[in-house]
Design a protein around this nucleic acid. Structure first.
Lengths: 191, 191
DNA sequence: ACTATGTACTCAATTTCATGACTAGTCAAG
DNA sequence: CTTGACTAGTCATGAAATTGAGTACATAGT
């Protein structure tokens, strides 16, 4: 009972298809919720059955037809109840952090490669979020937008996403640099 | 097949009981992996059956007896294979971020309360991590420790945890302040 | 001409996770 | 002297998530 609310929150921004939602949730960190495409489709089906969203068929000529969804009243009620209830603690799971934790007992080479890769991905998402934020705020500068706009929720989560990705990128870079300098000085000593 | 590696990585630091591990994984963010106590126990049982860890009974007079576990060779091999394989992308899920995303359509009061609460929790974990890091590095300063110590993995993940918690705390505080200033100016206008 | 990529889904099987309830003894506070 | 909190677990159930495969059509590249 949690993905459901993330889907409802995403649908507040307008109509989306399952496919579009799947892409949004696959990027994951922007809205602080990751979900696989298959989860989205099953959740949409459940939500529609429960009357919390309503779907509408859109016929397309050049592409497969699609169904777009909007939040119904019952869905808003559900979201309100969710917001009022206590939050579960943030859940985070990261393979790479586990590998770094064990790195002293392991071959560091693959871990280093993955740290580099992760840093690049984090930087890419940062850029992506930046574009998303610009699109949301239009011509306004950030402070102005945040004070005057009616819809700032998604912008606020973007801000959180930026913080996270920045730190992720920097941590990966400094950690990789440190591990490299250690291996260098070890091989130095053993000569 | 992922909790298993987190458990193995944690056991590299020494012997732990399921109960102790459960507490470590309940704090969660320090090692970037959350797991419920019951998961730990089942995972330990599986790992022992697979010969990746070995348990040892410790008889206690004043408390219930306990079993402590250490990593076996097969466990190290498993960890090495895990580290060499590609990482799954970081998975993050946060109820509170979902609520903030939807906040424009909702009563902001409970969300504000939860942001405050989360900021306090993040600050508490920061302090906790700080103590943990001091314990690990002893008298050395951070740079010295990171270059000379044999075992820096847990320290590196602590550093990541600090980055995360700092940003979490600051985001919660600025977000809550912003939302409050908006409600204030709205009630102003509607007078 | 072939291959890959993108849109837009569905179905099924399995694995993992999360939840609540239970046992059982110790210790400290009210 | 009783209640609650801490240590140290086990068991069972159900919800949620992951994985893999499959369908179908279109466009764009090599």
């Amino acid at each position: 009972m949690a993905l459901r609310h993330a889907v409802l929150a995403a649908l507040l921004d307008g109509e989306y298809t399952g496919y579009q939602l799947a892409k949004i949730f696959d990027v994951g960190v922007s809205n602080f919720w990751y979900a696989a495409p298959q989860q989205i489709y099953t959740e949409l089906a459940k939500l529609e059955k429960a009357g919390m969203i309503s779907g509408r068929q859109v016929i397309q000529l050049d592409r497969p037809n699609k169904r777009v969804f909007t939040v119904a009243e019952a869905g808003l009620d559900e979201l309100a109840a969710f917001a009022a209830a206590a939050s579960k603690p943030l859940s985070i799971r990261d393979d790479l952090a586990v590998k770094v934790q064990a790195v002293d007992h392991l071959d560091p080479a693959p871990v280093l490669a993955q740290l580099d890769e992760r840093a690049v991905e984090a930087a890419a998402r940062l850029a992506l979020f930046d574009r998303g934020m610009r699109r949301l705020r239009g011509d306004l500068d950030e402070g102005e937008f945040l004070h005057s706009s009616e819809r700032i929720g998604p912008y606020l989560t973007y801000l959180a996403g930026c913080r996270l990705e920045r730190e992720m990128r920097d941590w990966c870079l400094t950690t990789a640099a440190l591990l490299r300098s250690r291996t260098a000085s070890h091989t130095e000593e053993s000569r």
